[in-house]
Design a binder for these strands. Sequence first.
RNA 1: GAGGGUGUAGCUCAGCUGGCAGAGCACAAGGUUGUGGCCCUUGGGGUCGCGGGUUCAAGUCCCGUCACCCUCCCCA
Length: 410
Amino acid sequence: MAEIKRVRGFQDIYGENVKKYRYVVDTARDIFKRYNFSEIILPYVEDVSLFIRSVGEETDIVQKEMYVFEDRGGRKVALRPEGTASAVRAFIEERLYAKGGYHKLFYEGAMFRHERPQAGRYRQFHQIGAEIFGVSSPVADAELIKMVKDILDALNIEARLEINTLGDFESRKEYVRVLKEYLKKVENSLCEDCRKRIERNPLRVLDCKVEGCREATREAPVLIDFLSDESIERFEKLKEYLNNLGVNYQVNPRLVRGLDYYTDTVFEFITDKIGAQGTVAAGGRYDTLVKQLGGPDTPALGFAAGIERLMLLVENLPIERKPVVVLPVVSEFNIDALKVAGKLREKGIKTELILKEGSLKSRMKLANKIGAEYVVFVSEKPELKDMETGEQEQFDNVENLIDVLVEKVG
RNA sequence: GAGGGUGUAGCUCAGCUGGCAGAGCACAAGGUUGUGGCCCUUGGGGUCGCGGGUUCAAGUCCCGUCACCCUCCCCA
């Protein structure tokens, strides 16, 4: 029979990797809770139009990367390619805005994009993310960025922070219009990719690495001239807050995000240690998105981080306690061994009962391979062996042995 | 969507100008009565990614195909 293999771009996460996965998620979750964010578990499947209307009709994500299909009821649905759209949809649909105040949510889980797999890039990948709804103050921007920084610090991950402002929706639209006009004029000196970008993602042209494009855009209109006083004020405040929090950053005026919904603040945490896909966490403000999706006018912001990319940067996992191994010396003691293992587990001790029959020697090898800290030999006179030192002690009954063992590992 | 690299044992890889498919690690069983690691002995393991072609003979040469990795693009 032919072996069935996993689908391209999808992966099994097991062994060391699943420990890293859990470590990253648990660490982030802990920070989220310290910032008093509430978890929301969002569906993996949404109406396609949710993403068209939020991420943007013309973006690569919507144009060529979404897993779209018709369900049995003829509905056009998509596996979610990102989390913010769903969070906004839920915010509106669950009428959270009616509860007053503001809302801070975090989520975790799989996202799906049909891209060419690469280092740090999969078709099913996993993100942690958070969103804040109902706050326009840049205090929120600063706190969100600080929270991401806290997560990275807790994971012992170094990444540089780049920030930028895109301005409010109106001034950005105006800027994009003027920029497009300019780019069309210099189109002939642009690279092939950038010519395509003029319509699809004109801001990205400014960030092109090709020398000709850099040359051609040197005189291009700059966004800052189009920003409203309010946007400039907000950006200045954000920088002031970050300075006072001791969060280092670099202003990158060419930083653009690939999703259409961003306004004003955008930021990225970037590393060069994991290959070409160096953006490890990114986010920004999206003050018009809630309204755009049919909710009340609500300022909002958020971020997402790629769990797989964080995993690549995690170096030292916290050390785990080794198990105690319970081993019946001969099979007549299987029942006693089952009972002993049960008692140890009741005491909260990580216990491996050797399930295999065979020679004592082979089962000892197994205990060693499992990484036993102690071995409990179950027989008439139970014995406890310290696998580190090789010392072995005999007991009159299991109760005494368990007491001593609890003393040692409890 | 475009480009480059790699596919041989469970893993990491050798295999020359075509001539009996290998090593290390891992695995299993032993090295005297009921005790691991180190060492020694023995053993099990392969559609050489898949399909075609050239040849007396193909892991090796040719064509096709698939998968994985990396890069561009894009993004977390």
